[in-house]
Every structure is written in C-alpha cells, then in structure tokens.
C-alpha cells in the first residue's frame, strides 16, 4: 500500500507511525481506515466503530496535549485483530500522561444530572467516550515514552 512520506503501514497487525501533528493525525486516520477495509479478519461494524473511536480519542488527546517542549512528538499505533480479541497499542514521545490514573478520571467528563447548557463543559469527553468501549487499559512510562495497551470490549 502506498503511504505518504514519513508514514509506514504493514499488513498484520496494522502498524502506523506518524508525527503528532494535525496533518499526521489526519493522514494516519485515513491509513487506519484503509487498513481496516483491507483487513483479512474484518472486524464487525461495531468493533470497527470502536477501533476508530479509541484511535480518535487517544491519538487526539496525545496530539492536542502531549507535545514535549522542544522535542518532536512521534506516535506509533498498532492494532491487532483476532477472532478472540482486539488489542490497540499506543506509544508516543509526548509528556507523561496516564489515562488510567486518578487525574485522568477526573477529566473524563459526562454531563451531570440537571446539567445546564450555559455551564456545561464543552471538552474533556474523549476519555469518557474511549473508556466506554474498552475492557482493559494498561499504561507504562519507560525510556521517555508513554505506552498504552488497550483491549476492546468484545461486541
């Protein structure tokens, strides 16, 4: 499969490497969708939606908030699909951020009972949305990299 300069994609599992910019994110999302279209073990419609949802929210978070001062933000994503499970792995060179931690839980927003439109938060929903379709998340920080392994709920 042809891929833009600076991007790489292999057949199985799906592997993406890209710069953590808006453009890199957009191109990588297109590559992910193309790879899912060509996937031998095609995920069902719901699993596919959930893969794209987790990619959108986790990578979006890294791109918007993870850039290290003075360094390049690089992101590696792999998606391993089998009949039994879907595992997504995210590695990045951004600032440390544990989406499984307590501080992340407090920013995983939902709209409270009796919420008022004028006072409702208009951001911070991404982790809440991703967590809803995830069965497990494991985070580690090593060698100046964030590494997040996510197993999706079976549909």
């Amino acid at each position: 499969m042809a891929s833009p300069k600076g991007h790489r994609i292999d057949a199985h599992p799906i592997r993406l490497r890209f710069v953590g910019s808006s453009r890199g994110f957009e191109q990588a999302f297109l590559q992910l969708r193309g790879a899912l279209d060509g996937e031998e073990k095609k995920p069902d419609v719901r699993s596919r939606y959930n893969i794209e949802l987790v990619f959108e929210e986790i990578v979006g978070n890294i791109v918007r908030h993870g850039a290290p001062q003075g360094g390049e933000l690089r992101i590696d994503v792999s998606v391993d699909i089998s009949a039994e499970r879907i595992v997504m792995t995210f590695e990045d060179t951004g600032i440390p951020f544990d989406p499984c931690g307590r501080s992340a839980a407090t920013v995983a927003r939902t709209l409270a009972e009796g919420a008022d439109l004028a006072e409702a938060p208009d951001g911070g929903f991404g982790l809440k949305i991703a967590r809803a379709v995830v069965s497990s998340m494991r985070y580690e920080r090593a060698a100046n990299h964030n590494r997040l392994v996510i197993r999706l709920r079976a549909s």
Binding site: Y49, L53, E56, E57, L117, D122, F125, I129
Partner: peptide, 16 residues
C-alpha cells in the same frame, strides 16, 4: 456515520 468527542464539543458550543 461517526462521531467522537470533538463532534460533541461542536454541538455543545453551537447549542450554547
């Protein structure tokens, strides 16, 4: 066919 948190944010912002 697809919405993520940025789409939710857009709707809340416009509704407000």
């Amino acid at each position: 066919e697809f919405i993520g948190s940025m789409g939710i944010r857009m709707f809340i912002s416009v509704a407000r």
